[in-house]
Design a protein around this nucleic acid. Structure first.
Lengths: 331, 331
DNA sequence: CTGAAAGCGCTTACAG
DNA sequence: CTGAAAGCGCTTACAG
């Protein structure tokens, strides 16, 4: 890493002053085309790239954004690549900061990151301990996986697939529904739950209950095990694929026939879900664009710009064997 | 973020020179305790923290490490939190750089990261395009999920659980085995495959084949669908849980009884795997320590230190319903 | 044991 | 349209 060229080297090679090199690279207006060309050519010959640390020092902008991720939580990691790519595109560098499990240590770490002066913004894919932050603190956006603002904003924008799923199942003849929710600390879990409730109401369906879960398979397993025998046939809306998998297991254990006795839907479309028996109807998310969108919202907040509008088609439903008309297969 | 104090502010408050403040924070020997105390007290009063960008400029060490992750590949993301934590502990800052899908663009991106001068080391959780790098390039460690060096080093260190799994199944009475491998570009896939082959040989077992896969459920599904009827009973060693799930699906489709007709094992212990029917015997990895270990190896390479020794107990086997004696359940 | 001073590689008024 | 110069906040020989 020794011989990295500086703007002085480029200036010498191009026969201009160092300032001029800087002007070219910061895009300042009023550089003649001839000069710009000379500089750019010399720069590319030497393999010059501006030193970001030096630039940061002068501009007092770090150009850095942090993503905080909890150690030992797989849920939101898949959003990282898309978020990182979006940040790069906007000229930022993204750093990953890991968060300890223990709540007090975690809150302290978040404050540390916020006050370090290293970051212009912080993106958290997990619910954050609320703390009052100094007025001049960088923007913090906690999306887990989407925040409440999003939820409030767009009439279940985030949970719309739940509505679609239920409408279709109702059309197939289903009247009795059950929802096993995710961890209620997550806005996404609350959004899906609220969408479920509203849809039950709107379509005049019967809800056998809303069970709060923790995103784990045990939630689904227990919810189905606890059902009375005459609950059949029903449709179970699980907050994610893992819960759905647990529910399927419990149903098979009870000797139920799937999907005749119980239709079931998941969310996330995990790689295994298409290979379950029955294969699981689930919601696919475009994780790359979802991550990118989250990052773009943070960047807009950092820059004081208007929030970008939510991309359409973030979700798609994969209809599979686990959903059918109650009582037996019918189109 | 306006009023961040500098070493000058601390110096003024403490009544010493700015150099002295710097000496205290860089840990230079020969500062009197009284002076150090004054400085530290003033610093904490003001909330001073050294500006890393300025420090980087002077020392010409960036203190930054990069993790490159491919967009749209979930496989190794779970290693990130552990890796990030290990880097922080060693005093580095970790940045995430995302890699495009397209091979040429990807190779270019890797070269860019390598030559940017921004990073002292690069960790890749994915096979990297081989390219000749300049002599003074930063250390690059590609672990996917573990590299070949690891593999060569430790007699299947990485794939030891495969050996244990097979030994146990052989003890239960299994003689016929089948392996569905992962993407052969991954060292981990090759290590598991080689461990399988060596164990077949060593124990004098019959191998019905080694099928190269792509980590996907389709590999497992097809491999089992292609089996002759008299292959039963057998034991299928899948390179991961997704493959195993596909294999279970195909077996149930054929009307086989599990685990009587076929024992099956996975790897990764995905959240869904404990809730399959039958629940899947699988290999748990300590992703946090695995990520940390990878990062520690990179840091050792960066610093020219000896590589850390591999932590023990990185793996554990979860024995579940999918494995039993051939032909029927027996202890 | 402590300080004055140079300089890391940039950006950006200010002149011309 | 281009250049000379100051300064961002540090580290580190070099003096004393």
């Amino acid at each position: 890493m020794g011989e990295r060229p500086t703007s002085h080297d480029v200036a010498r090679a191009a026969g201009v002053s160092q300032s001029t090199v800087s002007f070219v690279f910061t895009g300042r207006a009023g550089i003649s085309d001839a000069t710009r060309d000379k500089v750019l050519r010399a720069a590319s010959d030497l393999g010059y790239r501006p030193n970001l640390a030096a630039r940061a020092m002068r501009t007092r902008r770090t150009g850095r954004l942090a993503i905080v991720v909890p150690i030992a939580s797989a849920i939101p990691l898949s959003l990282i690549p898309g978020a990182a790519a979006a940040a790069e595109e906007a000229g930022y560098v993204v750093e990953v900061v890991s968060l300890p499990q223990e709540p007090a240590a975690r809150a302290e770490r978040v404050a540390e990151v916020r006050d370090s002066g290293q970051y212009e913004g912080v993106l958290a894919f997990t619910p954050l301990p609320t703390a009052d932050s100094p007025a001049d603190a960088p923007a913090i956006l906690a999306v887990g996986e989407f925040d409440d603002e999003m939820h409030a904003a767009g009439e279940f924008a985030d949970a719309q697939p739940i509505v679609t799923l239920m409408e279709r199942l109702a059309t197939l003849g289903h009247r009795r529904f059950l929802h096993v929710a995710g961890d209620p600390r997550f806005p996404s879990a609350r959004a899906r739950r609220d969408a479920y409730r509203a849809t039950v109401e709107r379509l005049g369906l019967t809800s056998l209950g809303v069970v709060d879960g923790d995103w784990g398979g045990g939630s689904g397993e227990m919810a189905v095990a606890a059902l009375p025998d005459d609950a059949r046939p029903l449709a179970l809306i699980a907050a994610n694929d893992v819960i759905a998998t647990g529910a399927i297991r419990a149903a098979l254990r009870r000797g139920w026939t799937l999907p005749d006795d119980m239709s079931i839907t998941g969310w996330d479309d995990h790689p295994q879900s298409a290979f379950l028996s029955p294969s699981l109807t689930s919601v696919t998310q475009d994780r790359e664009r979802l991550g990118a969108y989250s990052m773009q919202r943070l960047i807009a907040a950092v820059r004081g710009e208007e929030a970008p509008s939510r991309p359409a088609d973030l979700h798609a439903i994969q209809w599979r064997e686990s959903t059918a008309a109650p009582g037996g297969p019918t189109p």
